[in-house]
């Protein structure tokens, strides 16, 4: 099972890289979203996948799963949710101000 999730994470990274190399700003943002999905899947895989119940007070079972990777993922998801939302708002604002979402035209800075 770890192999499968690792491969899925790899595919996510690959797609993310492809999207982030494109010119359109919206694609880049989708790329960053996929990149963080890949990273989250990787944490889950790295924590070890196994069958077991949640380690909560009321439950009694033979085996439990490690709660830490899940806590880490939840935190990371919230953070990437915030960053992606901010990025989207920024992209929208800059589309209004600069009139383009093409990274080619957002090159360089104002100095000579």
């Amino acid at each position: 099972m770890e192999i499968v999730t690792s491969i899925v994470a790899g595919i996510l990274f690959m797609t993310a890289t492809y999207l982030m190399l494109s010119k359109s700003l919206l694609r880049i943002i989708i790329g960053t979203g996929l990149l963080s999905h890949g990273a989250h899947l990787l944490i889950l895989t790295m924590g070890g996948l196994k069958r077991g119940t949640v380690p909560l007070l009321d439950e009694h079972a033979a085996s439990y799963v490690d709660p830490l990777p899940q806590a880490l993922i939840l935190t990371a998801i919230v953070i990437s949710f915030g960053v992606t939302a901010f990025f989207l708002v920024l992209a929208y604002r800059s589309y209004q101000e600069l009139g383009t979402d093409d990274m080619d035209q957002l090159r360089g800075n104002d100095q000579k």
């Binding site: 990273a39 944490i43 790295m46 924590g47 800059s94």
Partner: peptide, 27 residues
């Protein structure tokens, strides 16, 4: 606005790398 786009992009990628390195070290 123009520079912030690049700044965020660089930092989002490095944050993802941070999460990945944390995952590896935890493993």
């Amino acid at each position: 606005l123009r520079e912030t786009i690049k700044y965020i992009l660089v930092n989002v990628i490095s944050s993802a790398l941070f999460v990945i390195s944390v995952a590896f070290l935890y493993a």
